[in-house]
């Protein structure tokens, strides 16, 4: 075992991150943990929920707690790719074009209501997500590292939206829903401090180097052949199941494994066990599996499928 094995890195900062996130988002430890796992696995996150349940707060809290630069972009139907990526403007003093970086040049980007933008703008963002770089006027510009996109979608209003096609949904490692808080959590939130002020005062609890180490450590979490069997069995089941249009792609299988590794790391384990895969499966698979009957993601079908696949 070499120096970077998970057992050797300190998990304390990561646990501190989780603790602070749970202070901001009350009563959703599982969702915040998934969001952090997604970031550690270098994936992007899609949050699909009704307005006002804390999507923005979660994104903001993540950025603040990790000490990352944060930008929020409200997507609208008249938005152009330049509004996102940036634009070169002629500078009279220097007699040259100067690049004015758009909001995408940020470590954490919150793309609010991504399905309101035109496909052209959507694809500009999704391309940046995949390549982690932006090419403009023949010049390629690296995006910051880490680069983490949190996109939100409002499922209830579909009028005047451009739903993301399956190929683009596939680029989000996870899709989570926050849902309404339970009574106790909501009460604590109502009685507690104002979230805005809390966020303004929040201090990062992990250094950039520690975060990068953690991301490296995720890749080194051990995956045994028996576990790959299980991941393959799950993927095969989605491809053979009658309920879905398409099964999970190989990219999704890779994502599932990466997410399970991150989950195992957060649990302080240096190997992935089937429970890790199960913990992230719904978040990784649901948005990729459109049900035949409704043409929409159906979490209960995914849960049924997972329960039907025996662990090899």
């Amino acid at each position: 075992m070499n120096a970077a094995t998970p057992s050797r890195i300190s998990l304390a900062p990561l646990h501190a991150v989780l603790a602070q996130l749970d202070d901001f988002i009350l009563g959703k430890p599982r969702e915040t943990r998934l969001a952090l796992a997604c970031l550690l696995a270098r994936g992007h996150l899609l949050i699909e929920d009704v307005p006002g349940v804390g999507k923005t707060t979660l994104a903001h809290a993540l950025a603040a707690t990790l000490g990352l630069a944060f930008q929020r972009v409200q997507f609208t139907s008249d938005m152009l790719p330049a509004d996102l990526i940036g634009v070169s403007i002629y500078d009279r003093d220097s007699h040259a074009f100067r690049f004015h970086a758009g909001p995408v040049f940020s470590q954490v980007v919150l793309a609010d209501e991504i399905n309101r933008a035109t496909p052209k703008t959507q694809s500009a963002l999704l391309e940046a997500m995949e390549e982690r770089q932006v090419t403009l006027d023949g010049e390629t510009r690296e995006l910051p590292d880490p680069f983490f996109v949190i996109a939100t979608q409002n499922p209830s209003s579909q009028i005047g939206t451009f739903p993301l096609p399956e190929s683009q949904l596939d680029r989000f490692l996870m899709r989570i829903t926050l849902g309404y808080p339970d009574v106790a959590a909501e009460r604590a939130m109502l009685l507690g401090e104002d979230r805005r002020e809390m966020l303004r005062d929040a201090k990062p609890v992990i250094s950039l180097a520690e975060l990068a180490d953690s991301q490296h450590a995720v890749r080194r979490v051990h995956v045994a052949p028996a576990l790959v069997d299980y991941v393959q069995a799950l993927c095969r089941a989605t491809r053979e199941a009658p309920d879905f249009h398409n099964g999970l792609s190989p990219r999704a299988a890779l994502g599932l494994l990466a997410a399970a590794r991150a989950w195992a790391l957060l649990a302080g384990r240096d190997m992935v066990i089937p429970e890790d895969v199960q913990a992230v499966f719904a978040a990784v698979a649901t948005h990729r599996l459109l049900a035949r009957a409704s043409n929409r993601p159906q979490p209960e079908l995914v849960a049924k499928l997972q329960a039907a696949v025996a662990i090899p």
Binding site: I273, P274, I311
Partner: peptide, 9 residues
């Protein structure tokens, strides 16, 4: 063990 129950669970 249930069909999809992991060893730890």
């Amino acid at each position: 063990p249930a069909r999809a129950e992991g060893p730890r669970d």
